[in-house]
Design a protein around this nucleic acid. Structure first.
Lengths: 237, 237
DNA sequence: CAAATAGTGTCTTTGAGACACTATCGT
DNA sequence: ACGATAGTGTCTCAAAGACACTATTTG
């Protein structure tokens, strides 16, 4: 086994002066997804300065020396939208040398999912709405998006599409209590295709628990409200 | 939408002096998997220095200012094993504040998959064998592993298990020409369970192309050799 | 021909997909 | 009663699972 320990090798750390070498900066870039008006949307900011002035970019934050990546992501989400305690997960780390023309920046992308009700409540509906963009429109459009953020959005979109199939991701876009037609609609939007009602209900029946409440007001049969089944509840069954 | 741009915000970059703030260092940590003697194994190095002196650790490399993350991973694999042009993919980025007691290091983990024949050929069979450890034994053992590398191995092991189900990952562990019993054995090792021969063959029949060659020498019926079907070949069909 | 491994045919079971039906609200 | 949406029963079909069988080599 070749043991060519170069200057950059990790064993070299033992005689390594942290200040000797130039280092990349580390940021997190945040893909905050929600569903508004039956469309998957993402929070974006129009850049006020160069580079990419006037173009859309993802919100982000530098990773401080005393915080983990998850903490930086969580802080970034809170600073930009006010949201706390929402679902998020790390996606991928982007390290092209010139992905930011100003300096070498390596960015860890995170996606966060939140219901539109919670987003309106915390960020203000009019303030946040102007920052929400339809994901599929962005991806199809020729509108230029800053940095490699278009790639990041495409990556996040794919992740959602894949993960909806085998996880309970869809619930993150709904309030605590919801109807099965609502849940089905969310799934259809995330998957990009229509589903058969009876089949959909068979598939998700073990993930939800019915309540005794119903919707009301529509000129049609009321819909029963459900809550998400806690995974720990499985032990009871 | 709260627009509290803190010192660490990315828009702040416009008046940001790259040298002002202390930064984390960035490394790649490498999970080089192979299959030797019907076991999934991983390349590990026993540490010669503190911290974690005498414990096993993953090979790694610093990310240079002029190389991408993929390039750093590729270079690291080459420097430590001699391997070039093998399959690898980024897994996850680890950013706990004190994951390395010496200094703040954020590490992007990569996994690489290679056949034992190729590994022997390039690294030398005796040299590399002393660095190969059975993954499932490591994960079950109480043997201490340096840094957060145990978590990384567990993460990589899961990724393989999941991805084998819906991709052609298993082929990476085999030489160019292989038999279906070999391919089945690889799948069984990666999945951690036995498979029915007839069912397995139905499932993978569109991923392989038979050659006119056979194995020989065993005191039993010879096995036909196959090659992996190039995905581009789908166009022909 | 016996032992060993390679390779195939087919029945069963499970779950996805498709579609038709019934139920309950407001007007 | 009617329009609209909520909710259910069941047939079809394809894939996964299980198992039994045949095939070809060496000694």
């Amino acid at each position: 086994m070749p043991e060519k320990f170069t200057k950059l090798d990790k064993e070299f750390l033992d005689n390594y002066d942290s200040s000797t070498y130039d280092k990349p900066s580390i940021t997190v870039d945040l893909l905050v997804f929600t569903i508004e008006e039956e469309e998957l949307k993402i929070v974006m900011i129009r850049r006020k300065n160069s580079p990419y002035r006037g173009m859309l970019s993802l919100p982000g934050a530098f990773v401080g020396m005393e915080e983990t990546l998850d903490e930086a992501a969580s802080r970034g989400i809170r600073e930009k939208t006010g949201l706390k305690d929402i679902y998020f997960e790390q996606l991928y780390t982007w390290g092209e040398v010139n992905r930011d023309p100003r300096m070498r920046i390596i960015s860890v992308s995170y996606m966060a999912l939140v219901s539109i009700e919670e987003l309106y409540r915390v960020a203000g509906s009019s303030e946040i709405s102007s920052h929400l963009y339809c994901v599929d429109t962005l991806l199809q459009s020729k509108e230029n998006i800053a940095f490699d953020h278009m790639e990041m959005i495409a990556y996040g979109r794919e992740r959602i599409k894949n993960k909806v199939e085998y996880t309970q991701l869809a619930f993150e876009f709904l309030p605590e209590k919801f109807t099965l037609p609502q849940l089905q609609k969310i799934n259809e939007i995330l998957l990009g295709k229509e589903l058969y009602k009876a089949n959909f209900r068979k598939k998700i029946k073990d993930m939800v628990v019915e309540t005794k409440e119903f919707t009301s007001g529509g000129a049609h049969r009321p819909s029963k409200l459900y809550v998400r089944k806690n995974n720990n509840d499985n032990i009871e069954n």
